[in-house]
């Protein structure tokens, strides 16, 4: 989840910036790709990614040459979390960026700043509550992701099992106590995120 979070910041936010551009070519295609994990069944996405990123896959074979493997590895989990949470991050961010007043951006342009400077110094700080809320929701989604994780990670105990998969494994083994403890742990995290979101919402109202 932590690694996915870093990917969200480093890739998700720039992606939202690009998608919010008015004159982006093939915008519908990128939007569809980003939104896909929200609609398409996770197991199916996991399988397609397995084909793509596997040792003989289209992308995976390149990385295999330089000794980087995604499948049945921690990196696979990170990618799974990232892809599942991406639409929940990008969509609200894109909307917030598009709704940001045009005149303020233009005021920055005539002040000599380009669109990237404007985005980093003005738009992003101004929509900060939305950015943090979207990051939290996307990370929570990454935490609970099972389908893609199962396909890419392979559910190897102690190596590529996430909290959710650990609960599945525990139940499968009949160890209900362990499953309950893990559930309690997830409940604590979820409540934490819920309260954080609530606080963000009230801070937004106070603005």
């Amino acid at each position: 989840m932590g690694a996915s979070f870093i990917l969200f910041v480093l890739m998700g936010i720039p992606l939202a910036f690009l998608l919010a551009k008015e004159n982006l070519a093939n915008k519908w295609l990128y939007e569809a790709l980003v939104t896909l994990p929200l609609i398409f069944p996770p197991i199916a996405i996991g399988f397609l990614l397995l084909l793509l990123l596997g040792r003989n896959g289209w992308i995976g074979s390149y990385f295999h040459h330089i000794n980087i493997n995604f499948i049945f590895d921690f990196k696979g989990l990170v990618i799974a979390g990232f892809i599942s949470g991406l639409p929940l991050l990008v969509k609200p961010l894109q909307a917030a960026i598009e709704l940001f007043p045009k005149a303020i951006r233009e005021a920055s342009y005539v002040s000599g700043k380009n669109s990237l400077q404007t985005f980093i110094w003005i738009v992003l700080p101004s929509i900060r509550p939305t950015v943090i809320a979207a990051l939290l929701v996307a990370s929570a989604r990454a935490l609970g992701e099972v389908g893609i994780t199962l396909m890419l990670g392979g559910n190897i105990v102690g190596k590529t099992d996430t909290m959710s998969l650990a609960i599945y494994n525990a139940v499968f083994d009949g160890d209900y106590n362990l499953a309950l403890i893990l559930c309690a742990f997830l409940i604590v995290i979820s409540i934490g995120i819920f309260f954080a979101l609530n606080m963000m919402a009230s801070a937004k109202r106070a603005l």
């Binding site: 007043p101 005149a103 303020i104 233009e106 005021a107 005539v110 000599g112 380009n114």
Partner: peptide, 17 residues
């Protein structure tokens, strides 16, 4: 960016942050 102009907008357009 390269024109070196000042622009005053009707609705102020100050940087809110």
């Amino acid at each position: 960016q390269q024109r070196g102009i000042g622009f005053v907008f009707q609705d102020y357009a100050l940087f809110p942050n």
